[in-house]
């Protein structure tokens, strides 16, 4: 079903580090507020149930997708569709940085972060197993794809969702704020993310729904800036400031159709050229 007119909420939360129960209560409050505001979808940040720099807490806080925490949220998803971030313990014991899409009381989709960040201040590959696919899925609201934070830094991630025909990319994130030099009036992390998200919206002609958290963990802060961008690359809503907040936005379902008529990028994308090009590169690698 093509994207319908709908209302959505971006939840810019400040999870307590490792306090799953407390965070779950805040999720419930935000979900109820979003529902009261008439939203049909609420998007939470990456690892919204646990907080980010978990280190040894990662394994201690890993949740089963059928466990009680997600069951609570699944129940609430009878009223409003929910994207929530959590530490997932898979049946085989592997632990993933995951986001679950819940709708009509059911778990519709789980995306496991593919591009774990392990450089500089990050150490995700120590804590998590990497996901191995980008899969679009059908919600009653439209066709969606999830990119968790660093996933969006690899153009091949969004490209797959684009070619799979998604209407919106849901981008939950825990992006730390940094870069205050050069006289810039905004953080360099904000400058780069804005460029990245705008480019996704424009080049992949999709809605981009970005939910980034706020708050501090041992001196590192997350800069928020949660936003919705339409398929023309136009900003529809943005949460200002570094505080927790909810932003409600209306999605004009027709914008997607109009954007793809005005500039038919998906129609003209020629994915078989990409397939051939990748084969050629792979063959050259093998021959080397």
């Amino acid at each position: 079903m093509p994207l319908t007119d709908c209302r959505l909420t971006l939840a810019q939360t400040n999870p307590a580090l490792g306090a799953v129960q407390r965070n779950l209560e805040e999720h419930v409050a935000a979900i109820e507020a979003a529902h009261a505001a008439g939203s049909q979808l609420i998007v939470f940040p990456e690892l919204s149930l646990t907080g980010y720099f978990l280190k040894d807490q990662t394994a201690e806080l890993a949740l089963d997708v059928d466990g009680p925490e997600l069951r609570t949220l699944r129940e609430l998803s009878k009223r409003i569709s929910i994207l929530v971030g959590f530490v997932e313990r898979a049946r085989d014991g592997r632990i993933y940085n995951s986001a679950a899409f819940l709708e009509d009381g059911a778990l519709l989709h789980v995306h496991r972060k593919v591009h774990l960040v392990t450089y500089g201040m990050f150490d995700e590959e120590r804590e998590f197993a990497a996901g191995d696919e980008f899969r679009a899925f059908e919600s009653k609201l439209g066709r969606f794809g999830v990119l968790i934070c660093e996933d969006a830094w690899h153009v091949s991630s969004g490209l797959q969702h684009f070619l799979a025909g998604v209407d919106a990319m849901l981008v939950p994130s825990c992006s730390p704020g940094r870069g205050v030099g050069g006289g810039a009036t905004e953080l360099s992390s904000e400058t780069t993310w804005r460029t990245l998200l705008d480019a996704h919206a424009m080049l992949f002609q999709t809605w981009v729904l970005y939910a980034n958290r706020v708050g501090w963990e041992d001196g590192v802060f997350f800069w928020g800036g949660s936003r919705a961008i339409d398929p023309f690359g136009k900003l529809v809503t943005r949460i200002e400031g570094f505080e927790p907040a909810l932003a409600h936005a209306s999605i004009d379902g027709g914008a997607l159709r109009r954007a793809r008529v005005a500039t038919p990028l998906l129609r003209d994308s020629k994915p078989w050229l990409l397939a051939r090009g990748l084969e050629r590169i792979a063959a050259a690698e093998r021959a080397r």
Binding site: V180, G181, T185, W216
Partner: peptide, 19 residues
């Protein structure tokens, strides 16, 4: 303007929130 220059209102906002 050089590489070390900060935008003081932004840094003030961050550091007061940090505290």
């Amino acid at each position: 303007m050089n590489e070390l220059d900060i935008h003081p209102p932004l840094v003030e906002q961050l550091l007061t929130q940090f505290l």
